[in-house]
Simulated assay, not measured.
Amino acid sequence: MKILALDTSAKTATAAVVEEDQILCRASVTVNLTHSQTLLPLCDSMLTAAGMTLRDMDLFAVSMGPGSFTGLRIGIGAVKGMAQGLNKPCVGVSTLEALACNYTGLTGVVCAVMDARCQQVYTATFRLQGGYPERLTPDEALAIDELGEKLASLNEPITFVGDGAALCYEALKDRLSAVLSPPQLRLQDAASVGFAAQNFLQNGGQPLSAAELMPQYLRLPQAERELLAKTKK
C-alpha cells in the first residue's frame, strides 16, 4: 500500500510516500513562507522526481493535531481535496505520535513537545523498546513546569523531540536526566506520519472518508479564547 503523508502542523512543511517499511520519497522545507505557498509545489516536485502521481496512491495520511491552527487546516485541506478527488481513504495521525515515530526501533522514553507559546507545550510521552512507540500519556497542553513534574516521576532519561524540544530541554535539564534530540530527528517528518498511519491500520483502525477527516485541537484558537474571556467578565 502506497501512502502519501503530509505534516504542516508547525513551521516545517513535509511530504513523503511510504510503502510497507520503505520510504519511497520524502521532501521538507523549513522556511519563512506559508504552507499554502510551499506544500503543493513540494508534493508535485517530490512525486515528479520519484516518477509517481497522486493516482498511484492507495491512501492519504496527515497529521491532524495538535499544532498550528492555520497549518493544520492547510495540510488537512490538501489531503481532503486529494482524497475526495480520487475517491481514496484517509487516516489522521496525532502530530505528537508521529514525532515519537522518528525514534521507532530505538529504546528509551521520548517526550514529544510542540511550542504552544506562553510557556506551554503540546505534549505526549512514549516508551520505545525496539519497536513502535508505546504511548504513556495522552496528547495534552501543559505548562512547561507541570510537564517537568510529570516527567520527574518516571525517574529515567527523557529525550525531547519536536519544535519545543530545545525550549523544554533548557527549562528542565537541571531537574531531569534530559537529552535533546539531534536536528535530523527533532522536527516533524511526513514519513513518520505515514508509518503511524500504517501502524493504525495494521492494528485494526479504520480509514476515514475525506469528509470525515477533521483537525484535533487541544485548545481553542486564540480568537475564540479572547472572546470567551470577554464574555466571562
Score class of each variant (00 low, 15 high):
Lys2Ala: 13
Leu6Tyr: 02
Asp7Asn: 01
Asp7Gln: 00
Lys11His: 08
Thr12Lys: 15
Glu20Ile: 08
Ser28Thr: 09
Val29Cys: 11
Thr30Cys: 13
Val31Asp: 07
Thr34Phe: 05
His35Thr: 03
Thr38Trp: 00
Leu39Ile: 11
Asp44Arg: 14
Met46Glu: 00
Met46Tyr: 06
Ala49Trp: 02
Met52Ala: 10
Thr53Arg: 15
Thr53Ile: 06
Phe60Leu: 05
Ala61Glu: 07
Met64Glu: 09
Gly67His: 03
Gly67Thr: 04
Ser68His: 01
Ser68Arg: 03
Phe69Ile: 08
Gly71Pro: 05
Ala78Ile: 03
Ala78Glu: 00
Gly81Asp: 07
Ala83Thr: 13
Gln84Thr: 05
Gln84Met: 10
Asn87Ser: 09
Lys88Tyr: 01
Pro89Leu: 09
Glu97Val: 02
Ala100His: 10
Asn102Thr: 09
Asn102Tyr: 09
Gly105Tyr: 07
Leu106Tyr: 14
Thr107Gln: 14
Thr107Ala: 09
Thr107Met: 09
Val109Asp: 11
Val110Ile: 15
Val113Glu: 02
Thr123Trp: 01
Phe126Ile: 04
Arg127Lys: 12
Leu128Glu: 05
Gln129Val: 14
Gly131Asp: 10
Gly131Tyr: 07
Arg135Pro: 02
Pro138Phe: 12
Asp139Trp: 03
Asp139Tyr: 01
Glu140Leu: 10
Leu142Cys: 04
Ile144Arg: 14
Glu149Gln: 12
Glu149Met: 11
Lys150Trp: 07
Ala152Trp: 11
Ser153Tyr: 13
Ser153Trp: 15
Phe160Leu: 08
Gly164Met: 02
Gly164Thr: 03
Ala165Ser: 03
Ala166Cys: 06
Cys168Tyr: 08
Tyr169Phe: 13
Glu170Ala: 14
Arg175Tyr: 08
Arg175Glu: 14
Ser177Trp: 14
Ser181Cys: 08
Arg186Leu: 04
Arg186Val: 04
Leu187Tyr: 15
Leu187Ile: 12
Gln188Asn: 10
Ala191Thr: 11
Gly194Tyr: 08
Gln198Tyr: 13
Phe200Val: 09
Gln202Cys: 10
Asn203Lys: 14
Gln206Lys: 11
Pro207Gln: 06
Pro207Ala: 01
Pro207His: 01
Pro207Glu: 04
Met214Arg: 15
Gln216Val: 15
Tyr217Pro: 03
Leu220Pro: 02
Glu224Pro: 00
Arg225Asp: 01
Thr231Pro: 01
Thr231Tyr: 00
Thr231Gly: 03
Lys233Glu: 06
Lys233Gly: 03
Lys233Cys: 02
